[in-house]
Structures are given as C-alpha cells and as structure tokens.
Nucleic acid binder design. Sequence first.
DNA 1: CGACCGATTGACT
DNA 2: GTCAATCGGTCGG
Length: 210
Amino acid sequence: MTSPQPSPMRRGSSLKKLARSFYLQPTLTVARKLLGKYLIRKIGTHTFAAKIVEVEAYLGENDPASHAFRGRTKRNDVMFWKGGHLYVYFTYGMHFCANIVTEGEGKGRAVLIRAVEPIEGIEVMTKNRGLESNDKNFPNLSNGPAKFCQALNIKREQNGTDLLGKEIYITQGENIPRSKIISTTRIGINNGTEKKWRFYIKGNPFVSKK
DNA sequence: CGACCGATTGACT
DNA sequence: GTCAATCGGTCGG
C-alpha cells in the first residue's frame, strides 16, 4: 500500500540536482542562494541529506581571509577549479571543513558551508559525531563547519569531488524568502573582518553561535 | 629546518 | 570566560 509521503525529500522539484551554471554565478550570489538547498551525500546505498542553513563567502585574491589570497598552492588548488567542485581542507590538526567552489576556472573563490539541518540519515550522522540518539542538544549534530563534515563523513578523500556527480551534489531544496536571510561578518578570521559575507537563515536552530 | 598558527571544537575555571 | 588538542601548510633564517 502506498500512502502520501509529505517529506520534503519526496517533493519533485526539491530533488532536482543543480546545474553547473548555478555555481558559475558571482560568489556572493551563490552564497545567498545556497541557503535552503539540500546537500546530498551518498555512501554506497546509504544517503545523507541536509539543508544548508549557514554559509560564508571567500573571494580569492581580493580577500585576505581566503586561503586563495596568496595564490594557488597544492593545498588550495581545488579552489581554483571551475565552479561546482567541493574544496575540503584540514585544519587545527583534527578538523575538516567543506567549501563549494564558485565562478570560473582560475578564480579561487568558494563558499564555506558552516552549518546544516539534518533531513535524512540522522541516525548515522549521530553515530559519526559520537553522540547518543537521545542527546538533548540536537543542533550540536551539525551546527558548525567541522561538525557537519564529521556528521556526513566528509574528509580529505572528498576534496575535489565534482558536485555534478553521484557521490555528493546539491538539490533545489526549499525557497528561503529574502526577509529570512541575514548577512553579517564572518567568524574565526583575523583579516577582512569587516566584510559581511556570512549568510544564514534567520531563526534556524542549527546556525552556529558567534 | 624550526617556529608559528589556523575559515574549530570541546573541556574546563 | 580561558585554553589545549594536534598536524600540515607556510614562512623566516
């Protein structure tokens, strides 16, 4: 017997994979538009889905806070690939963070995913984070850039993944009205602190704290 | 080659 | 609020 499935994962338009052209737009445009989209991560037959609720834009050679500010290196090479790839970096000796590469080949621009809201695969995410399923602080699952990578098992091996492939991609997700998008200064940087290139969904419980 | 430190997190005073 | 964990990239000598 089939019954209606009102889950957002079952709504046709929300499942549509974003095209390359989406990522080739200006970085600040991509950053705002990524809010509400669904990040899909497949591992074998298992599927993770998570709504993007907080991002930060890093504008390459014009942005002293960006890894790409001092040019192309082995570490940041993927940032210079054409838009629509995943740039994953290792930091503080123990954490991974993931970015969506934007604009054209050679630009060195990207959008850091800072927080997501789990949609599908929550049990495995909880296990990956080393938490108990009855944890009182549920947002702790994915309310930070390294936390969400740990939850979705995104590590060094995922650096350079093409987001138009099958392993990791982004779908249309939910439309976020302009009135719910907050723009403010970025977190955890020492240069370029005046730029309001952090964007998040107002009121979403998974947005990281400042 | 050694020193410094980071787009963070979690434990602790 | 402060601070250690932990390691690879980056920079100065």
